[in-house]
Write a protein that binds this DNA or RNA. Structure first.
Lengths: 157, 157
DNA sequence: CTCAAGAACCGAACTTTATACGGCACATGG
DNA sequence: CCATGTGCCGTATAAAGTTCGGTTCTTGAG
C-alpha cells in the first residue's frame, strides 16, 4: 500500500518535532536549532508538507477562554437492526460542532464521542436534542471529565 | 473567577476560526478575508495571544505517515486503597509519549487514556510493560479504533 | 454643549522572513 | 571516468511582519 514516495531522516524528525510545538517558528530560527541553513530548512519543510507528513498548521485555542469549560466523553451503542445506521450517525456527527472527535471502536459499544460544551446544561441539551434524537441510537453512557491530566495530543516524533 | 481582562467580538471570532484552520495564514491574506487592514489584524492577533485565547501554534502531523497507525482508548480503574495512586498515575502518564491524552472522569472508571501506537504488537507492549506495570492500576478495558469518523478536534468559534 | 482622553483603525517607512536561482560538493551507476 | 541526481548553501528579490505617527470616533467629566 505504498503511497509514500520518500522516507524521512533524523533531521526531518527534528523539524517535525519543532513545528508541532511551534507552527509559526521562522525558517531562520528553526534552521539554527537544527544546524542547517534557512534555505535547506525551507526546502525540507515544503517537502514534508508535499509528502503529507505535515497535514497543515493551526492555532491552538483555549477552550476555557472560549466558554467551553466542560469536556465530556460519550459511549454510543447503535441499534444494528436498522440498515444505514452507521452511515447516518457518522454524517450527523460530522455536522455537529460540539463533537470534536468521534471514533468507531471494537468492544462493548460502537462509537466513542468526544464533546466540548459550556456546562452541564449545554451538555444536557446536546445529549437530549441532538445525540438521542438521531435514529438508531440505542444507548449512551456519559463520562464527564473532572481533570485533564494530559491534553496536548502531541505525537511522538 | 475573572482572570480575563478583555472580551472578544465578532471579528476576533472570525480571526480565531481562520487561524485554527490555517495557523500559517499571512496577516495580509487574513486581513482581507475579514475586511480589515493588515496592521489592525496583526494587533488583534497579538492581543488574542496575550490574553490567552490563542495558546500557541502547531503543525498537524499525519500519524499514519509517522508509523502510528493504531489509535486505542483505554479505560483505567485504580485501586483506591493505596494513597497517592492518582498522583503517581498522572505523573507516569505525562511521561509516556504513547499517551496523547489522559482524562480523569466521573463514572464507572477513573481515567480515560488516548493512545497512539504502531500496531497491536506495540499496544500489547505498552499495555503490559507500561500501563499495567504502574502501581495501583486495578483494571483496564481496551477499545481499539476501527474507523476515525471525526478527528480534527476543531473548537466551534 | 465642549473638550480631553482613550480606543481602534489605517497608511507609510523600516525590518525581517520567505522564495527563487545558481553554484558547489558528494555519492551513484553506467 | 563521466554523467546524473541529490542535498546543501549564499545571494538577490519579493513578500510579510512591525513600528510609528496620525485620523476618526466614542465616552465621560466639566
Amino acid at each position: 500500500m505504498g503511497v509514500r514516495m520518500t522516507d524521512i531522516d533524523r533531521i526531518d524528525r527534528r523539524i517535525l518535532k519543532q513545528l508541532q510545538a511551534d507552527g509559526r517558528i521562522s525558517a531562520v530560527e528553526l534552521a539554527d536549532k537544527i544546524g542547517l541553513s534557512p534555505t535547506s530548512t525551507g526546502e525540507r519543510m515544503k517537502r514534508l508538507q508535499r509528502d503529507g507528513y505535515i497535514a497543515g498548521f493551526g492555532a491552538r485555542l483555549d477552550p476555557h477562554r472560549l466558554g467551553l469549560g466542560l469536556l465530556v466523553f460519550v459511549e454510543v451503542s447503535l441499534d444494528k437492526t436498522t440498515p444505514d445506521v452507521f452511515e447516518k450517525f457518522a454524517q450527523a456527527v460530522k455536522r455537529a460542532p460540539e463533537v470534536l472527535e468521534c471514533h468507531m471502536v471494537a468492544g462493548g459499544f460502537d462509537y466513542l464521542v468526544k464533546t466540548r460544551v459550556a456546562d452541564m446544561a449545554a451538555y444536557r441539551h446536546f445529549l437530549g436534542e441532538i445525540l438521542l434524537a438521531l435514529p438508531g441510537v440505542k444507548e449512551t453512557r456519559t463520562y464527564a471529565v473532572m481533570e485533564e491530566v494530559k491534553s496536548d495530543g502531541m505525537l511522538p516524533v
